[in-house]
């Protein structure tokens, strides 16, 4: 699993690719924390076009990132999520907590 960050104005984008499971979740959470703390963005965009697989670990990652952005008064959105990921996020009702496209 890899994650690439780009910053533009007050928007931080994270492109996640590969497979996300419990084995990789902690490292991704920590990296997101670090980048959010450094950039203090208004908006966090998670680009999941390259995400080949996620299980419920992805739910935990998104909820944590959402809380972190909430503390900063910012927002989070998920873009280009593959069908498999959307199905997992829907099972937890995440689409009611953040925009998922």
């Amino acid at each position: 699993m890899t994650v690439t960050f780009t910053e533009s104005g007050r928007c931080l984008s994270a492109a996640v690719s590969g497979e996300l499971d419990h084995h990789h979740a902690k490292a991704l959470m920590e990296e997101l924390d670090r980048q959010i703390d450094a950039a203090m963005p208004r908006r966090l965009v998670l680009d999941l076009a390259g995400l080949g697989f996620t299980d419920s670990s992805g739910i935990a990652v998104l909820i944590r990132a959402m809380r972190r952005m909430g503390q900063l008064g910012g927002e989070i959105r998920v873009e280009r999520a593959p069908e498999q990921a959307k199905k997992v996020f829907r099972a937890a009702g995440l689409q009611r907590l953040m925009p998922i496209e």
Binding site: H22, D55, I63
Partner: peptide
């Protein structure tokens, strides 16, 4: 710990 969302069994059941 916080990497777990508590949704494991729910997902197994619905998938």
């Amino acid at each position: 710990s916080e990497e777990r969302s508590g949704m494991g069994f729910t997902i197994m059941e619905s998938f």
